[in-house]
Each structure stands twice: as structure tokens, then as C-alpha cells.
Design a protein around this nucleic acid. Sequence first.
DNA 1: TATTGTTATACACTTAACGTATGACTCGAT
DNA 2: ATCGAGTCATACGTTAAGTGTATAACAATA
Lengths: 298, 298
Amino acid sequence: MTRSLDRLTLLETFVRIAERGSISAAARDLGLSQASASRQLADLEERLGAQLIVRSTHHLSLTKAGERCLADARLLLAEWEGFAEDFAGDADRIAGPLKIVVPVALGQTVALDCAVAFQAAHPEIVLDWILDDAPNRFSEVGCDLWLRVGAVPDETLIVQPLAEVERIVVAAPGLVGPADGDPQALANVPCAALHPFEGGRWPLTGPLGETADLDARVTFASNNIATTKRVAVAGGGYAIMPRWLVAAELEAGTLVEPLPGWRAASLTINAAFAPARRQTRRLRLFIDAMKDGLAGLA
Amino acid sequence: MTRSLDRLTLLETFVRIAERGSISAAARDLGLSQASASRQLADLEERLGAQLIVRSTHHLSLTKAGERCLADARLLLAEWEGFAEDFAGDADRIAGPLKIVVPVALGQTVALDCAVAFQAAHPEIVLDWILDDAPNRFSEVGCDLWLRVGAVPDETLIVQPLAEVERIVVAAPGLVGPADGDPQALANVPCAALHPFEGGRWPLTGPLGETADLDARVTFASNNIATTKRVAVAGGGYAIMPRWLVAAELEAGTLVEPLPGWRAASLTINAAFAPARRQTRRLRLFIDAMKDGLAGLA
DNA sequence: TATTGTTATACACTTAACGTATGACTCGAT
DNA sequence: ATCGAGTCATACGTTAAGTGTATAACAATA
């Protein structure tokens, strides 16, 4: 009987090499010698009959086959983990890493509160909390969970809505004169928007359910909502903001609502994750905790 | 770095042991010594932290955990195989085993024709063709594909309809006098039915789309349609049969249609298989070939 | 009872994966 | 240009774990 090293271990090594972009770095992470890691990668390539990684002394890159293999290897490893977890002798022990990518503003505020409470409740879970506003592809970051405000640009993922985000119009006091409940009073006022901003106007809904389109003169756009808020507070323009993000400023009076009762279309906070047939228990628990914690956001 | 034997190999050994109900028999199948097989099973149990099999010298049985593990192990192994297949150097080579469980009548006739043609087209695929009318659970037989006429009694499976089966009323010549197109003329005629037969009557549709219920005096019932046909040919009763199953007898005149143009509700031939996220190529090809081959059945 | 088959385990053997060492290469600093 | 540091692949001796053989205990059957 031919003995062979664990196929799943080969996949783990490959995934770590791909994530680190270096055989040596991955070997150090995994507690192997560089030679062993190099050989395990070669073994996997031989077993699968395809080159997965193009080697050079200072730069590794994935082949097309390597990219496919990376996604599928992650899924297979997740399947094994979920499978093995079902039989764990200590069925109530919830442990292991969770890598979560979350937009900066959300990840510094309400979602962070939820995550901290979750981690306190499950101290053996290690949270890797990555704040990132870049519209990365899920497959590039290799995380367990991707929190997004708004649409998830990857149809291969399972998307679970967690909460709705109410958005209101805010501005620094003095930037806007009395709008008298008319959205068009802001048509020529500078606007600080989130990038990408499309359509040139904000569809708004008023206190009585009436609708109006506010034409937007965008003078500042960023992919980071916290900077957009800073610009608004500094009087650089009005902004459309989640209420929870500006609650303190509204309380302090550094921001006001020039259009009280008017709201922009709400956005959904979504949890996105890979469609492994079986999720680890800690991921499911985390998603549930996040959904509960964000439920009072509206 | 701790070296470990392949986790997937441990699962393969476990599945074979469970299917054979014997560590020794599985070891012989796999080309291992009995001692190695025994140890691999013990290793898997230790790794998962659960007892999977209750041992005795002459009888092995699965624990509850073992039953779950069996289903999931099969899926994980299928996932690996589909995954590895994607990278095979010889991408056009279609090889490996396929275990198919099929009702006896279907498996001796039209489905067999399709399977034989498929095997001729793909000589490196080994078909394990199991005829079985027993209403087994899918998980008991451990096959790749389960062909069923009618509903599939397992909601965990993916069910793909392949063809519709037209069913007509047939009887031996002389059993029934002229029915004059009236289904109730057969109400007191003995009927040979398939087991289980429920409802006590046959809903029929006539040549002009008219409907009638034929009350059934069932004097013979079997789970094997071929025996039901034999009873019909022998004059033991009329029967509701797929047209393709009695085509030869109708041609030879050993069976006649006492109700020409009347038909019973058609049944669907379904292909059922486990919801692994990725199917092996040969299974997909086989299902497609079966669907094409049965398309002209109606 | 004897025979045959089962599973678990001790023991010596086998072998593949291990780490160390080395060479070729690349990059950045001087 | 040289030097130092880091990269990856591979040869070689070592290590560790899985292997089969042998054995004991048990169970079923004739």
C-alpha cells in the first residue's frame, strides 16, 4: 500500500503559499522547513497534473489553474472542517480562527461592538478583523466572511441580509440656509459622496412618503465613508449618511439635518460567504450574533 | 511537522468497511492487510473523536455517528474526485467506476440499452449495474446514481427527471370481454398491481381527454413489475403497464388493450444523486446519456 | 468438539516525508 | 561593481509513522 501525505494538508500548504506569495513565508507560518513546503506544493501539482504556481526567486504568481484550485481548495478544507467539527468530542467547544473583512466605518463602530461582544462570549475564537473599503473580490482576500453595506459584487457567494441602514441628509450648521423641506434647495450646494456615485441625483423620501430627486453637485467623492463624514463636518458639503454614523455629531450639533424627516434609500448590511455545503459552527454563530447585534440599527 | 496518513484515505477505508460490513473484507478489497484496515478505522475514530462502528467478531454495525459520517464521507470523497478531475492532465479521459441502482424492469430493457451504448462510448468507465426493486434508502446502497420510476423517497437528493412513462391498460386476450370503451366494464375483473397500490382505483384518461376512475379489484400485487406482467400475460388479471414494457406482447398478441386509447397517469423516470457540490464528469455524462436515450420512450 | 472466520494488538520492517546543507538566482544597498 | 540577504529546488542522511506477519480471543457452524 502506497503511503501518501494527507491530500488536505497539501491543499492547506498550497492555500497558505498563495496567500503569502512565498513558499518560505508559508513554511514559517506552518512550522515546516522551506524544503518541505516546496516539496508539498510540487507533490500537489504532480497529483493534480497541473502547474499551480509560477516560481521565481522573488515573486510567485498563480496560474489560471492555480486560481481555480485556490478557491476550490478553500471550500474543500472548509467542508472537512465543518465535517470534523460535527464529531468533536467536546461538542460545545467553539474555537478556531475567523477572518472577517468589513468596511472601515462599520468595522470601527457598530459591527465592532458586536464582534467584541462575540469574542468575549467565545474566547477561544480568534477574530482576524480586516477593515477595507476597497471593492476587492472575495477570492482575493481569502476570508471567512465579508460584510458589505449594499450589494455584494460576487454572485458566487451566499448573501445573508443582516440589517437595513437608514440614510439621512446631513450638513455642517451654516452650510445650508433654511431648506423649508424642499430637497431642491440643496441642488447647488456642494455634496460629499461615496465613490462610486452614479446617476447624478439622490432619490429621497419625505416625512409624508412623498418622493423627490435631489440633483447632486458632487465636489468630493471617496470610497471611505469616514472621510466623507469628515468633509461634511468641515463644511465641505452635505452628505448622505447612515444615522448611526452621525448620531454623535447630531447630538453635539456639529452636523444638522437640513431636510428633517427626509431620507435616502436605505442600504442593506449583508454578510457574504462562500457556498461550502457545510459552514463551521463558529461562522454560523458569528453571523447570527452579527444579525442580532445590528437588528436595532435602523 | 507531524506526518499523517491521508484523511481522505481514512474516509475511503471507512466507507468500504461500512459497505462490506467487515474490516477483513474491506481490507481485501483495498489491498491492505486486515490489521492496517483496522488501524485506519481506529485512527479515523480517534481523529474525529467519535465511535463510528460497533465491532464484534461476526457482525459490525454503524453507530448513529457512523451513519452520518458515512453519508458525509461519500460526499467529501466525491468532492475531492470532482475537484481533482478538473486538473487532470488528460482532460478528455473519462474513466472510473459508476454504481447505478435501477428497477429491475427498467434495468433489463430500455435503460440497459442506454447504459450499454454509454459504456461502449466510454470503455474506461466501469458500470456497476444493480437491479433492485426494493424501496431502499439511497444511503443504504451507497451508489452514484439511483434511477427511479415515480417519486424519489428521499428529499436530500437531487432529482433530475429523465423521461415520462406512458401507462396503458393491458390484459390477456379472452380475460375481458368487449369493454366498449367503458373503463367500469373492468371493475370486477381481477387486477394485478404494483406494490404499494393505494387508493383502490385507477384514474384514467380517454382518447378524447375524458377522465374516469376504474375501481380496482386487486388480486395480485408485487413490487416487481416484471412479475406483474407475467401474471397479466398468464391471464391472472389486467394490469397497468408502461407501453414500452409490453410492446413485444402487444405485437405478438399475448396481451391486448381492452380500453384502446385510455391511459393511466404517466410516471416520471427520475435520476437521483447526492448533492455534492461538484459531480464527477462521468456521472454528468451518464445522466445526460440516459436522458437522451430515454427521450423517445413516451 | 474442531474448523473457519472475525477483530485487536505486539513487533520488526519498510518507506516516504522530514530537516539540513548547498547551489543558483534575484534584489537592494553601498 | 561587490556584498548581504532572501528566494526556491534538490541531494542526502535521518526520522517517524504506517506496513504486514503473527498471535490471541472470540463467535458461528457443522
